[in-house]
Design a protein around this nucleic acid. Structure first.
Lengths: 210, 210
DNA sequence: GAAAGTCTGTCAAATATATAACAAGGTTAT
DNA sequence: ATAACCTTGTTATATATTTGACAGACTTTC
C-alpha cells in the first residue's frame, strides 16, 4: 500500500466511509454496492468507486463490496492497525470532554495523561486519567512514546505548547485553539477551528435571507 | 451584496481572513497587501485577491487593503452585523465547554439556554446560563427567536434532536455528534466530526512511516 | 509634478477534482 | 450450463479551483 499521490480530498472522505461501513457491519449487512453506498452517504457511486480504487480493487464485479472486508481495509488505510498513545494539554471543559470520549479509545487512541498549568487541576483524575503538571510534559511524552498531542489550551497558550511538542518525539498535533500554529519540522497538524466553522453557519444564514 | 455562485471553498477561507485581519487590527496595522497577507496566511496572493473580489473591490491599486475596512467587510459577508440567538442541547462536558467560550458571545452568538434530559443537570447554571428540561425545547426556541442549535448530545440522541429542531423556527444546526443528520427542509447544517478529523491524523502518521 | 514603483482587479492558463460512460468479469435465476 | 443481469475498475469528459500574468490605477519619491 503506497498511498502516494492521493489527494487530501479523498483522504478526508475515508473516515466517512469507515463510519458508514461500521454502521452496516453493526446491522449485519454483508455486501454493499457503490450505488447503495451512494444513496446512504450522498457521494456519487462513481466517486466512491474511484476513491476506493486509489487504494486497491476491493470490490467484485456483479457483487459489490464485502462490508466487513472493506471496513477492515479502510481501517488499515487510516492507520487503525495499532494503537496510538496520546495526551491532552489543557484540562478544562474541552479537554475533559475529549478525555471522556470512549470512541477515541475504542479506535485505538489511548489517552495516557492530561496536562495543565493550573495547580487546582493537577492531581485530579478525569475518567481515570491523571492530570499532571505541565513541567513534566516533555519527559512524560518521550518516556511514554506519545505520538499525538491534543492542544486544548487557550489561544494564548497554544503556540507555547506547540513549541514544546517539537522538542519531543511526538509527531502529530490535534489543535483546538483558534490559532494557526507555527511549526518548523514535519509535524502533522490537524486543526479544529470551531469559530471558523460557526462563521460559515452565520454566512449561510445571512445568505439565505437575501 | 448578492453572494451567489460563490464556491464553498471560498466561503470556508473567509473566517481565516477574518481571524488574521483581527490580529492585524489589534496590532494597529493600517494597511496590508495581498502579498503580505499571503505570507502570513499561506494562501497565494492571487487566491486572496480573487477570493475578496468575489464580494467586491475592497482594495486599492498601489496601496493594498485597509485593514479595518476589510475586516468589517468580511464580517458583513459572514453575517456578523447582528446577533444570533443560540441554544445548546446536551449539557455534558462538550456543551459546557461551548457555553464557556466567550469568543462566540463576542462575535454575536448569544447563548440563551442549554437543554438536557438528565434530571441532575436540569436547573444548573453554567456560565450564568440555565440548563432547562428538554421538554420545553420547542416552546423555548420559538419564543426566544433561537436561530442556531448546537447539538452536543450522544450519537444516539442527535437525530431525535434534529427532528425536533425541524418543528421549530430555528434554521441552523451545528452538530457535534458523530452522525450525519437526516434533514428534510432547507435547514443549514454544519458538522464537527471529531473522529473523522482524528482519523486523518492517524492516516498521515501511518503514511509517513512507509 | 513627473517618474518610478507598487498593487489591485481580472482574464487566461494550468491543475485538480468530480462525473459519466462502458467494457469486462462475476453473479443469479432458471 | 446458459442467459440475463449487475457491478466493478478504468478511461474519457466535464467541471471546479488554483495559479500565473499583466494592464491600469494609485502611491511614493525625488
Amino acid at each position: 500500500m503506497k498511498d502516494k499521490n492521493i489527494s487530501v480530498a479523498v483522504i478526508r472522505r475515508l473516515p466517512k466511509y469507515h463510519r458508514y461501513l461500521k454502521e452496516l457491519l453493526d446491522n449485519d449487512v454483508k455486501r454493499i454496492s457503490s450505488k447503495e453506498l451512494s444513496k446512504m452517504i450522498g457521494f456519487t457511486a462513481s466517486q466512491i468507486r474511484q476513491d476506493l480504487n486509489n487504494f486497491g480493487g476491493f470490490g467484485q464485479q456483479g457483487y459489490g463490496y464485502n462490508v466487513e472486508d472493506l471496513y477492515m481495509e479502510i481501517g488499515k488505510i487510516l492507520g487503525l492497525t495499532r494503537p496510538y498513545n496520546v495526551v491532552i494539554v489543557g484540562a478544562g471543559n474541552l479537554g475533559q470532554a475529549l478525555a471522556n470520549y470512549t470512541s477515541f479509545d475504542r479506535l485505538g487512541f489511548k489517552l495516557q495523561a492530561m496536562f495543565d498549568v493550573n495547580p487546582k487541576m493537577i492531581g485530579l483524575k478525569i475518567n481515570s486519567v491523571n492530570v499532571i503538571d505541565m513541567d513534566q510534559f516533555e519527559t512524560f511524552v518521550d518516556e511514554n512514546n506519545v505520538e499525538i498531542v491534543y492542544i486544548c489550551t487557550s489561544r494564548e497558550g497554544a503556540q507555547d505548547v506547540a513549541d514544546r511538542i517539537q522538542k519531543t518525539k511526538a509527531r502529530a498535533i490535534w489543535n483546538f485553539a483558534p490559532v494557526d500554529l507555527k511549526i518548523k519540522n514535519d509535524m502533522i497538524v490537524e486543526n479544529i477551528h470551531l469559530i471558523d466553522n460557526l462563521l460559515t453557519v452565520s454566512y449561510f444564514l445571512k445568505s439565505r435571507m437575501e
